[in-house]
Amino acid sequence: MKILVCISNVPDTTTKITFTPDNKAFNKAGVQFIINPYDELALTKALELNEAAGGGTVTVIHVGAADTEANLRKALAVGADDAVRIDAEPTDAFFVANEIAAYAKDKGFDIIFTGRESIDYNGGQVGGMIAELLDLPMVNVINSISLQGNAATIERDIDGGREVVSVDTPFVVSAQKELTEPRIPNMRGIMMARSKPLQVIAPAAAEKRTEISQYQAPQSKAGCKFIDAAEAETLIQLLHNEAKVI
């Protein structure tokens, strides 16, 4: 299979999120960026599918500035064959989806993987938009995928159960947690990543359609109070008078 995996750069999960003084931008100073964890699962599954089939290629693609290349190099170390960076700020989902679709449209990818959402903005829109722009079927938030020739059998959670979907290549899918375990690069992979191609291409003409006008940090959570089991009366009083929930 010829597989394209879309990689997004997100702040490390332990990052303390702050904004610029005018609350118009995320404060990137001192923040460590990682590959979006759902995209890591997508990458690992893409590699597993090709390993099971005994061949194929995995290309990773990312829309972002040069300072994101370390994470593309990591994707190569994990096992991707080549990487593409579209040299532009990923301003909104429509812009990113257009850039990726413009790259992918004449490349003949059998499968395009995204994560179910990025863990920073949680939009979950890029995969669906790519499918629409390329006129491909999409199966969203998948739990498992297996291939028999060009036919894929995909499982996904639905309310109160599970759905089994059949779809022929080419198609777009988005990965969620149950799909696989993320792969940690080994030393040999890191060494080999040095010589794998990382292509930087200029962005296609595309517009962004949304603008973030302001950020607000959530209110800090109140501290927990521990009430001794023997003092149920105090607990009831606090729930009545302080938390006002009963």
Binding site: A70, P185, N186, A193
Partner: peptide, 9 residues
């Protein structure tokens, strides 16, 4: 960057 990738891995 490679050293940091080694450490991260």
């Amino acid at each position: 960057e490679e050293h940091k990738l080694v450490r991260d891995a």
